[in-house]
């Protein structure tokens, strides 16, 4: 390092500063360069220099705290080291690598670890569907209690079988715009519900369970409306093409919420805060999975539901994709566990 020659009549801490100032200035410049252009743009020599100058500055800070009372120097070194620390200890993974690892290992392993929570999610949905259908059988007015008006858009118990059939097949040119808007509404609605289902799970799982259950109720009642008019097979196909993915996404979001709730409810041998932090890792991964599934469901819904018109193809696509999810989640990332 180039030292400005310290004159002898300087006091000790001033000499200390004069000897090292050039190095600090260089570190400052390197840090600024790394901040503006990214750490990966630094050359090999520069990166090595940065690391070594950072350690020297940390050392100097430690010494300066002991020997100097110059507040300007102390606060400068403190800020410089803090800034360099933020550059040196920045996340090193590339976004692509991060995403790839999440897909191949992170998410499937998290799913396999959280079977109790997943059970809660799917049971909530199933109970909802069964109860929704059963209650509709007892009294049709339940439909209006469960299904919000904008979601039903005319597909009510009073609608004729022909009308209902027309909503399932060939959406028609005139209704295309409306359907696009409807899909949009559903997508933003779905993501919000899923995130809510997840985040509210922290209150001992109950809100997640209730929200998922309620989703099941809507689905059950909706299905029953068509079933009554003899369209059970057709509605199953219509719902399956995206619903398998979408409903599974709700269940998984609920499972994520349940992970949080279970951590609060049954923390085990650790404190609740600690349990929340541990379970939170898997819960967040489940939520990311739910988000991915919702996006896929939106794409399926937007592109395929109206273009694929035969019920058999709809069933095949819907459940085929469902099977693909299951295969991915059960088989991927196994070898790393062993």
């Amino acid at each position: 390092m180039t030292n400005a020659a310290p004159s002898l009549d300087q006091i000790r801490s001033a000499r200390f500063r004069t000897e090292r100032e050039a190095g600090w200035k260089r570190l400052d410049a390197l840090v600024l360069q790394a901040e503006n252009n990214g750490l990966h743009r630094l050359g090999y020599d520069e990166a090595q220099e940065l690391a070594s100058l950072y350690r020297q500055a940390m050392n100097a800070l430690s010494v300066a705290r002991a020997i100097s009372m110059d507040r300007a120097l102390l606060s400068y070194l403190d800020a410089l080291c803090a800034r360099a620390y933020l550059v040196v200890y920045a996340p090193q993974e590339s976004l692509r690598g991060l995403f790839a690892r999440l897909i191949t290992h992170g998410i499937p392993q998290a799913v396999r670890r959280s079977s109790p929570a997943l059970l809660i999610g799917f049971v909530a949905m199933l109970l909802g569907i069964l109860l929704g259908a059963a209650l509709y059988d007892l009294d049709k007015s339940w439909f209006y209690t469960f299904v919000p008006g904008e979601l039903a858009s005319g597909r009510t118990p009073e609608a004729s079988a022909d009308y209902l059939r027309s909503t399932l097949f060939d959406g028609g040119q005139d209704s295309h715009d409306e359907l696009g808007g409807f899909a949009t509404f559903l997508f933003s609605h779905n993501t919000q519900v899923a995130i809510l289902t997840f985040a509210l799970g922290i209150f001992v799982t109950l809100p997640s369970f209730v929200l998922t259950f309620y989703n099941g109720l809507i689905l059950g009642a909706f299905w029953k409306v068509f079933d009554e008019k003899g369209l059970a097979y057709e509605i199953t196909g219509w719902l399956s093409i995206h619903g398998v993915t979408e409903m599974a996404a709700f269940c998984i979001a609920c499972a994520g919420g349940a992970q949080l709730g279970l951590a609060v409810l049954l923390p085990g041998a650790v404190t609740r805060r600690e349990a929340l932090r541990q379970r939170g890792r898997d819960a967040v991964k489940l939520m990311i999975l739910a988000g991915l599934m919702l996006i896929s469901a939106a794409i399926l819904e937007g592109f395929f539901r109206q273009t694929v018109q035969s019920t058999e193809a709809r069933l095949a696509i819907g459940w085929g994709i469902g099977l693909a999810w299951v295969l991915w989640l059960t088989l991927s990332g196994r070898e790393a566990e062993a």
């Binding site: 300087q10 001033a14 110059d70 300007a72 800020a79 800034r83 933020l86 932090r277 939170g280």
Partner: peptide, 21 residues
């Protein structure tokens, strides 16, 4: 709290001259 993070001001290093010199 859940993530164990905190929001701080970005430090701005500014070296003032040494008064003792």
């Amino acid at each position: 709290m859940i993530a164990g993070t905190v929001v701080v001001e970005t430090p701005k290093p500014q070296l003032l001259p040494d008064l003792s010199t």
